[in-house]
Amino acid sequence: MEESRRSFLKIAGIAAFGLSAIPAIDIFASESSKKAPAPAPDFSLTENSKALSAKRWGMVIDTRKFKSEKDLEHIMSVCHSIHNVPNMTNKRHEIKWIWSEEYPHAFVGDENEYLSEKLAHTPIIVLCNHCQNPPCVRACPTQATFKRQSDGIVMMDMHRCIGCRFCIAACPYGARSFNFRDPRPFISKTNLEYPTRMKGVVEKCTFCVERLAIGKIPACVEASNGAIIFGDLENPDSEIRKLLKNNFTIRRKQHLGTGPSVYYIV
């Protein structure tokens, strides 16, 4: 997909150059001088030099640092506003990329009857786990959802999705939302730097691929005041690996073998 987009942009760039060169060629023709033409500018796409890269992106969420629902609300609203996530009035049509759950719902099957007082009242922030072995990718009949080989992010191609919702059935974390109707009227302030979606397609958290590409960390991480740590799980010297080494962490529904990339310190 990425490859075809790249080649399309290349061709489009060459075509644009060709068109823009017509007046210049005309000038040369009329002057009939023997000036050498300027070297063709390079229109090929190169990665932003500031882009962040990793072998496998991952996240550690330190739930101890969240005191109340309020701390989470800020994080969620930042994510939802920059990604044009609509605020649907009908609960059935709800769309969410990152949200909070109570412990027994976030960690179904791992709940204790007698949960520590603190944990029982700590809201747990949940989002797409960007699984190592994602069942949604396995289920998708068009590869509209796919795992990016370079860094393990599970992405969505909104232009290819047929809206069959097989991925929603396949996801054991309820991370995916479907546009049951045109979402645009429900976006309070559209961020023009990020696309909006249309009715009939599935969407979810993308680990902020668009921000990583220009050297920024994911919005939720930035807004979390250090409660969410983001980094390369395959780099033994990364901050995230040090955290994992020094703390006991759990992942959601580990027994399913999906290999979530989001870890929790509880």
Binding site: R138, A139, C140, P141, T142, Q143, A144, R160, C161, I162, G163, C164, R165, F166, F178, N179, K199, G200, V201, V202
Partner: peptide, 20 residues
């Protein structure tokens, strides 16, 4: 289907790992 006019994507992008 949410986007029935894209139904042919199932044939254009055949995906043998999908049961669909």
């Amino acid at each position: 289907m949410g986007q029935p006019m894209r139904a042919l994507n199932v044939i254009l992008h055949p995906t043998p790992n999908s049961v669909m």
